[in-house]
Design a protein around this nucleic acid. Sequence first.
DNA 1: CAAAAAAGAGAGCACCGCTCTTGCTTTGGA
DNA 2: TCCAAAGCAAGAGCGGTGCTCTCTTTTTTG
Lengths: 230, 230
Amino acid sequence: MSTPQGARARARQEITAAIKEAARRQLAEEGAAKLSLRAVARELGMVSSALYRYFPSRDDLLTALIIDAYDSLGEASERARDAASTAPPPARWIAVCEAVRGWALAHPHEYALIYGSPVPGYSAPETTVRAAARVGLVLIGIVRDGHRGPGLAGLSLTAGLRPEAERMAADLAPDLPPEAAVALVAAWAQLFGLVGFEVFGQFHRVVEDREAFFRHAAARLAEGVGLNGS
Amino acid sequence: MSTPQGARARARQEITAAIKEAARRQLAEEGAAKLSLRAVARELGMVSSALYRYFPSRDDLLTALIIDAYDSLGEASERARDAASTAPPPARWIAVCEAVRGWALAHPHEYALIYGSPVPGYSAPETTVRAAARVGLVLIGIVRDGHRGPGLAGLSLTAGLRPEAERMAADLAPDLPPEAAVALVAAWAQLFGLVGFEVFGQFHRVVEDREAFFRHAAARLAEGVGLNGS
DNA sequence: CAAAAAAGAGAGCACCGCTCTTGCTTTGGA
DNA sequence: TCCAAAGCAAGAGCGGTGCTCTCTTTTTTG
């Protein structure tokens, strides 16, 4: 009688959260490949088969962690945008880029989970897609703001790309010129190229002052999407 | 006494090659996570323990595949460069970028192995590093050629980055101005950001005409390293 | 030709994901 | 209020994995 929603439902939520928490810790320590349902169960003091009441398979657990990671990254980028809300668009762009980088360096295994090799088979559940879009939306918003002001500077378009560019603009941000939509998507992928190379150690013995290097690259990325250097 | 080098040594080479070949096929079909020593041994008609005479662990087998993948990609990019050797540097740059993309799309699991999440622990044997440099060398060569001609166009440098830029230039290509070295490394990472997003499905429902999109992005990347549009 | 080195075969260990059955507890309707 | 239904934990067990150890056979070498 006590709790309205039923004590059992709440217990289920709590246990589900505890499982994800333990799994996330294992993920951070050992990586996705080493994440073991049995080890998670052991850490929680339950038997491994009991865990299947909460997640029907290891891949489902991983999918839950993937969605959480996308949300965490999205939140970090939104926080950076809001913290820089009074700055001009180029500075805001750089702030968000640095937030993405900072999050990735702080959570390398979770970053690998969402932007490295897709580990669970090849499924991309629809829920994942929505969670993945958050960072993109933040970037779109900044570019939109920037283009309201001084306008775009020096964005070109290869001949054959115009129809695709118009389609992309219509899908992504109808109020943006097609050139900007193309440049934005490219910059989006390139941002994660920079971050991924750093997180995955590809800059080893190539870039030393990675902080300064990234700041510079992010600034040039901003120019690339038409945000004229502040 | 027949063969000079010893029949056994040759047999060892052949078996090693056969193991790698079988492993590569499994890798292409199921991905690195599913690659199983036992399955490889089964396919070759030997018992799993015998395989340890050739590779001391599963990770060592994977490392061998990683090196081969780097070599294969490096070779593809060198072929593209040589095939376009008469074209002006910007066109050569684009050709190499497209070769990288083509190789990645043709060998997604091998691409994931080398540019996705680093799967075997966190070790990067020295041999791997040398193999990884090949694509980079091709890109450096093109930019060097380009800068011999008309010179760099509009490359800037953020204030604090100058010392790092000079260090990078000294290491990478002493005959290149520091601005170009920085731009080159950034473009290198960004190229693999574009390719990775496409291979790992991040462009799903975002970019449709990926061929045209990539061509455009590669062209802008060329401009970014100072190769003035042909 | 005999000693030494290399290779294969097999058993076995500890772990894994996952399924199925068996009891116990909570829940919700008659 | 009571009782069937549903939810959940536990245990045993299946087939698979990476890896180690021992034993035997084959090849190379002094």
